[in-house]
């Protein structure tokens, strides 16, 4: 469904993303992990159209979308959430979500009705008239997801929706992500929380210093020595193996 081919992005000399490729199968939950500063969010921004790549291509449903503006991609069915939540402060929860719903209906009352439905679906049903700044961190993350869902996406890009949540909140959100996929939305998610990645993802890609260093099922990827070294430093994989042998 989504095909990313050797995307490259340079920020004046620094290569943030270096020929990264990945593909997301329709109906899957695909994870993108990697240490801090690996370039995950930059890669996401290029997929969603917020940054223009210096090389490579993005194609979606067989169509090259590399040059399309973000709002055109949204209309084609790609929705994203932001790592740092970006609610519309002057609007309440329902109105926030309605901005997304307006993508498919010009009618205000219809958009507000859809917004209420989606709010209920993500667990914000009781907060419709709250200001977005009155929500808890978890609430705002839900709002991000709700707004993106309101655009009726086919592909949902989730950028660390679980970051900043406590364990019980994470347990609440996991079924929501799975539920979204079960409704037919393909998901590509950046995530740091391994519990979530192991739980949710069918395939995982690992980005380190801008390069894609591993891919595969979550379990195999976690045992990949290259991945372990990317996270824990040079030689870590060997040390771990030695320790396991001793134990």
């Amino acid at each position: 469904m989504l095909e990313v081919k050797s995307l490259t992005k340079r920020f004046s000399g620094l290569v943030a993303v270096d020929q990264a490729s990945l593909s997301v199968a329709k109906g899957s939950i695909t994870g993108l992990i990697g240490p801090n500063g690996a370039g995950k969010t930059t890669l996401f921004a290029m997929i969603a159209g917020f940054l223009q790549p210096d090389g490579g291509s993005v194609s979606y449903e067989g169509r090259d979308i590399t040059a399309l503006a973000p709002h055109v991609r949204a209309r084609a069915g790609i929705a994203r959430t932001f790592q740092i939540v970006q609610p519309f402060e002057g609007l309440n929860v329902q109105e926030n979500i309605a901005v997304g719903a307006y993508l498919h209906t010009p009618d205000a009352s219809e958009a507000m009705r859809q917004a209420a439905d989606i709010a209920k679906r993500v667990g914000l049903g009781a907060d419709l008239t709250k200001g977005s700044s009155d929500l808890t961190v978890a609430g705002r993350k839900r709002l991000e997801v709700a707004r993106a869902l309101a655009t009726q996406p086919k592909l949902l890009l989730l950028d660390e929706v679980l970051a900043g949540l406590n364990p019980s909140e994470i347990r609440d959100v996991l079924p929501l992500v799975r539920d979204i996929r079960d409704q037919g939305v393909t998901i590509l998610m950046i995530e740091h929380i391994m519990q979530a990645v192991m739980n949710l993802c069918d395939t995982v890609y690992v980005l380190s210093q801008g390069r894609m260093i591993a891919q595969g099922e979550p379990k195999t990827v976690c045992e990949d020595p290259q991945v372990i070294e990317a996270y824990l430093g040079h030689g870590a994989a060997e040390r771990l193996r030695a320790e396991q042998a001793h134990a």
Binding site: P70, A74, L103
Partner: peptide, 26 residues
């Protein structure tokens, strides 16, 4: 205040990027 256009105006005032992500041609 009762239309899509108005909601889009406020959305881009509050956060242009987020508005774009929701398909608003800012």
């Amino acid at each position: 205040e009762h239309s899509r256009f108005g909601a889009y105006l406020v959305a881009l005032r509050e956060n242009e990027q987020a508005a774009q992500a929701l398909g608003v041609d800012v």
